[in-house]
Design a protein around this nucleic acid. Structure first.
Length: 196
DNA sequence: ACACGGATACTA
DNA sequence: AGTATCCGTGTC
C-alpha cells in the first residue's frame, strides 16, 4: 500500500482538496477513506481563519505543508485541517467526512452509536471517531507516529458544491465529495450561486 | 426548531 | 471584562 507523500500538500488548496478524496486516513487503530473535503485559501477567502486570525497566518508562515491544524468549533467539536503551501496559493483543506474502513468497533465506542453511515459523516464526527483533539494541533503529519495517508486506488468521480455552514464567501465552489459515496455529511446541492 | 459552550478578535 | 462570531451535532 502506497502512502501519500508530502508533495500532496504543496499544491494549491483546491487541487489538494480533490487529490485527498479517495485516500485513506489512518489514525492509530482506526482508519477511514476521505470522501468529503473543503478548500480554504489564505488570501481572498473571508471564510478562512487566516483572513482574520493573526495566529493562523503565522501558522501558515512558519509550519511545513502537511502540518495539522485542529481547532475547536462552536466550543464543542474539533475540526481537522491540513496545511497546504504552494506559495501564492497557501491554505487549508478541511476533512469533512470519511467512509469508515478499519477499527469500526472503536469508532462506534467513541461515537456512542452503531450506524456506520453516522460514524464519520461530518467534520466533528470524524475527529471524535478517530480520537483527534487539539493535542495534535501544529503537529507535522509526516512526523507523527501511528498515522499515515494511503494513496487512492482507482479513479474517483468528484462532485463539486459550495462550502457548508459558512457565512463569508459562501458562493465559492470549494466543497469536493466522492460523488458515489453514501458517507457524506450532506448531499451535494444543486443550487446555483445567488445573483448579486 | 434549538441548545450546547470555548477560542479568538474586537470594543473600551 | 464584555461582546460578537464561528468551517457543527444531537435532540427536541
Amino acid at each position: 500500500m502506497n502512502t501519500v507523500p508530502r508533495e500532496l500538500f504543496t499544491l494549491d488548496p483546491i487541487r489538494s482538496a480533490q487529490e485527498l478524496l479517495g485516500c485513506t486516513l489512518v489514525w492509530g487503530k482506526a482508519a477511514g477513506k476521505i470522501v468529503e473535503t473543503e478548500a480554504y485559501a489564505e488570501f481572498g477567502d473571508e471564510a478562512s481563519h487566516a483572513f482574520l486570525r493573526t495566529g493562523v497566518r503565522e501558522f501558515i508562515r512558519f509550519r511545513p505543508p502537511g502540518s495539522i491544524y485542529v481547532y475547536l468549533n462552536y466550543g464543542v467539536h474539533w475540526l481537522l485541517n491540513f496545511l497546504v503551501k504552494q506559495g501564492p496559493w497557501n491554505g487549508f483543506v478541511l476533512i469533512r467526512a470519511l467512509e469508515p474502513v478499519h477499527g469500526i468497533d472503536l469508532m462506534e465506542q467513541r461515537r456512542g452509536l452503531h450506524d456506520p453511515k453516522q460514524l464519520c459523516s461530518g467534520p466533528g464526527k470524524l475527529t471524535q471517531a478517530l480520537g483527534i483533539t487539539g493535542e495534535s494541533n501544529g503537529a507535522d503529519f509526516f512526523n507523527l507516529p501511528d498515522v499515515c495517508l494511503l494513496a487512492r486506488t482507482g479513479r474517483i468521480e468528484v462532485a463539486i458544491d459550495r462550502r457548508i455552514g459558512i457565512t463569508k464567501s459562501p458562493d465559492l465552489p470549494w466543497r469536493f465529495v466522492a460523488a458515489e459515496s453514501k458517507f457524506l455529511s450532506a448531499p451535494v446541492r444543486k443550487t446555483r450561486p445567488r445573483a448579486n
